[in-house]
Design a protein around this nucleic acid. Structure first.
Lengths: 104, 104
DNA sequence: CTTATTAATCGTAATTTTACGATTAATAAG
DNA sequence: CTTATTAATCGTAAAATTACGATTAATAAG
C-alpha cells in the first residue's frame, strides 16, 4: 500500500509526533516530573487547554505516551512498553557512524 | 522570543525534518549507498523530481544533509559535522530510561 | 440535586506542508 | 553555437497542522 518500508513509516510517524517544540516539552516534562496530570501540563505550556489536549492526543496516537483517566482528571505518562523500542529505532538510524564516501 | 527551550526547538526542528517517510528513506539511502546524486535518489523514490528536490532542501535546511554541485549534477551526503551531535540529542531524550512514577 | 472542575471534542480560521507540472539556469556534449 | 541533461525554483491546488474559544461529558464537591 505504502511505497515506503515499515520501518521508515514508523520512524517518520514518531519523528512527526516529536516535530513540535510543545510536544518535545511535554515529553521532557513527563520524563522529569512526578506529576503528569493534564492540567499541570497545561500550566507549564504557553498554550490553551484545548491545544495542549490536541498535542497530548497526537503523542498518544504515536504511542509515545499513555493517558489514564482517574475521576475528573487524566494522568499522562510515557508509554513504557514502547519507550525502549522507540529509543532503539532512533538509535539504529542516528547512531550509524557515517563514513565519508568518495562522492562528496 | 520563542517560549520553548533552545534544545526543545532544536529537537523539534530535526524531528520535523525526519517526519516524512520519503525523507527517512533519503537519509537511509545516503547512509547506505555510495551514490548520492540527486537523480539517483529521485529514481529510488515514488515521487517527482521537484518533490524530491523539495524534500532534499528541507533535510539540508535542518542540517541533516549537505549538497555539493559538481557540474550539472548535485551530490548529496549526510552532514558529517552535525550527524554525531544530532544522534546525541535524540539519544539524550529517547534513551532516558523511564522509571514508572506513582501517578500512573 | 445543583454546582464546580477537569479534560475531550467540535467548529473554524490561518498557516504550513505536500505534491505536481512547467520553467529556468547551468553545465556538458555534439 | 546548438542541443541535451540535470536539478532548482515557481506557481498552484489539495490536504494537514496549529491554535483558539465554545461546548460537552463526566466526576467531585456542596
Amino acid at each position: 500500500m505504502t511505497p515506503y518500508s515499515e520501518k521508515d513509516e514508523q520512524i517518520a510517524l514518531l519523528a512527526k509526533a516529536m516535530g513540535h517544540p510543545a510536544r518535545v516539552a511535554i515529553i521532557r516534562l513527563l520524563l522529569k516530573k512526578q506529576t503528569c496530570i493534564c492540567g499541570d501540563i497545561v500550566d507549564e505550556l504557553p498554550l490553551s487547554q484545548s491545544t495542549v489536549s490536541q498535542h497530548l492526543k497526537e503523542l498518544k496516537e504515536a504511542g509515545l505516551i499513555q493517558g489514564e483517566i482517574t475521576g475528573v482528571k487524566t494522568c499522562y505518562c510515557i508509554d513504557e512498553s514502547n519507550w525502549e523500542k522507540i529509543g532503539k529505532l532512533f538509535d539504529g538510524l542516528f547512531n550509524t557512524t557515517y563514513k565519508a564516501k568518495s562522492c562528496c
